[in-house]
Design a protein around this nucleic acid. Structure first.
Length: 200
DNA sequence: CAATAGATCATCT
DNA sequence: GATGATCTATTGC
């Protein structure tokens, strides 16, 4: 298994971590590591999506077959297809019954780089492998069959981890990308000057 | 460099 | 039937 020593001293994030306001979960996810089978990446850019009052969020539509997971237990993956072509990965936040999630927008690749390159032949540079929500799901082979998956189970192939001793990073706050409603809400968070963040 | 067209389909109106 | 929480290739300056 190509998941190396880097992750040996890591702890899997708990349901309590996700059982908070989506904005807070989003900020605290920066610097954490997403692990899926043979690849892993450090989270460098996220966006928070809130409940029914957030018209840019899928949860604004209320409970539908697609948004059901958003209103459910925290610590689950919410994966959906966008533009008929790309998958987007979110983690569900807020207590059960309240909607809210965090969109993962960019990762710094840390494990399985050659596998990622194989899955994303269009990426010319390492910085292009996971610098966008549709790019990183392809690089880590995250698809809709992971929708609803519990990422807080330690002995699972798909988890989010905290690296022992890794400090809380600085945080840039900006507005969310690619939406047409609530465009001024300051819910995009990224690690300052990180080269793996997506481009506007 | 910036701007844009086209790919492609699940979801909701 | 219209619309995206996107990405890539291509065009033009």
């Amino acid at each position: 298994m190509p998941l190396p020593d880097l992750l040996r001293d890591s702890t899997v994030l708990t349901p309590e971590f996700f059982n908070r306001r989506a904005e807070d979960v989003a900020r605290d996810l920066l610097g954490k590591v997403i692990v899926n089978a043979d690849t892993a990446g450090r989270i460098v850019e996220v966006e928070a999506y809130l409940g029914v009052s957030d018209l840019a969020a899928h949860a604004a539509a209320g409970i539908t077959p697609r948004t059901r997971v958003l209103f459910g237990a925290p610590g689950r993956a919410y994966v959906y297809l966008i533009y008929g072509m790309y998958e987007c990965l979110n983690f569900v936040a807020e207590p059960e019954g309240e909607a809210g999630c965090v969109l993962i927008r960019a990762l710094e690749p840390i494990c399985g780089l050659s596998t990622m390159h194989h899955r994303r032949p269009a990426a010319r540079r390492v910085e292009d492998l996971c610098s966008g929500p549709g790019k990183l799901t392809r690089a880590l082979a995250i698809t809709r069959d992971l929708n609803g998956a519990d990422v807080t189970i330690a002995r699972s192939t798909f988890t989010v981890r905290h690296l022992a001793g890794s400090p809380a990073p600085d945080i840039d706050i900006s507005t969310r990308i690619g939406i047409s409603k609530c465009v001024d809400w300051p819910l995009r968070f990224s690690i300052p000057k990180n080269p793996f963040v997506s481009r506007r």
